[in-house]
């Protein structure tokens, strides 16, 4: 396993001011992250903090204003087939069947393979996401969860060096979400590719990740803290939910995010969060002095 397989150095994303005068609008201000090969990173932060911006830059769909990203020693410029992307909305082409959508990816990723090999490859990944019985259905005939399964199959079928997930379960109901987290984790466990996933679900961030990267609020967002997740893999949701360590971790993340929230939007009364029977003592996150 190579360390620093994915290396993000001094990433800055800014836009010229809308009026043409004044300071540039800085969305992401100095994002540094080093990811080992086969590591699963989740990126968490309040909405609008620029976490998706970072992911889109990694995907090559957006360009950084400053900073260098290397993947396996190569500097990334623009999109590439070395990265597989699962979008929030599955982004399937509606006139193609599930199989054809995955084939589009396989045809591009494995141009040297024989047709039959490519078909088998696409079918293999569709089976892995549990869609073997729906391969010839069009997206309109599939549920939202099934569409996202196709999206996952399409990304994995590329066998990319880096898997990028942009809130892939954000549009799903919670049961489907839990189901798909497991599906994703199962395939990932087999393939063990480096992965970066953006999410705003704290439980999901912990369940999936080797390390959780927390971003400060935008504009001028950067990394607030990085929390390693110690649980051994394969993980079971049930065991996780029974361990105290999980809750401690959860408190730490919630605490960090809440603190940011109050920092930026001071309110007379703190919002009670049902999910966090928080005892403030548990909030021990070193905030690395990055908060404005």
């Amino acid at each position: 396993m190579t360390s620093n397989y994915l290396s993000i150095n001094g990433l800055i994303k800014s836009y010229p001011p809308a009026t043409g005068k004044g300071d540039r609008l800085v969305i992401v201000d100095g994002f540094d992250l080093h990811v080992d090969e086969g590591e699963f990173i989740t990126l968490i932060g309040h909405s609008g903090c620029g976490k998706s911006t970072v992911l889109m830059i990694l995907a090559g769909l957006s360009t950084q204003t400053e900073g260098v990203i290397t993947l396996g020693g190569n500097t990334l410029t623009g999109p590439g087939l070395d990265r597989g992307i699962v979008f929030q909305s599955p982004c399937l082409l509606p006139w193609l069947t599930a199989f054809e959508n995955v084939m589009l990816s396989v045809d591009q990723g494995k141009p040297d393979w024989k047709k039959a090999e490519r078909r088998d490859h696409a079918m293999k990944y569709l089976s892995l996401v549990g869609l073997q019985d729906a391969v010839h259905k069009k997206p309109a005939e599939l549920s939202q969860g099934m569409r996202q399964r196709v999206g996952i199959a399409r990304a994995f079928a590329l066998q990319p060096k880096l898997l990028l997930l942009d809130e892939p379960f954000g549009m799903l109901d919670s049961l489907t979400r839990i189901e798909l987290q497991q599906v994703l984790l199962d395939i990932w466990t087999q393939e063990r590719m480096t992965a970066v996933m953006v999410t705003h679900d704290i439980d999901e961030a912990i369940f999936m990740a080797d390390r959780v990267v927390m971003m400060t609020n935008g504009p001028r967002a950067k990394i607030g803290d990085i929390v390693p997740v110690p649980f051994a893999r394969p993980r079971s949701r049930g065991e996780l939910l029974e361990s105290n360590e999980f809750y401690a971790l959860r408190e730490r993340l919630v605490g960090f995010l809440e603190e940011l929230h109050h920092d930026h939007a001071p309110k007379p009364e703190p919002e009670p969060t049902a999910a966090t029977p928080a005892s403030p003592k548990l909030v021990t996150a070193p905030l690395s002095g990055n908060l404005s």
Binding site: L61, P79, G80, R83, I85, F87, L93, Q108
Partner: peptide, 21 residues
């Protein structure tokens, strides 16, 4: 834009993007 993004990340050529997307 979603469809065009798919074309971009899958590195479809200009002709493929026109024809397939």
């Amino acid at each position: 834009q979603d469809y065009l993004n798919v074309a971009k990340v899958l590195k479809l050529s200009a002709f493929q993007t026109l024809w397939k997307v």
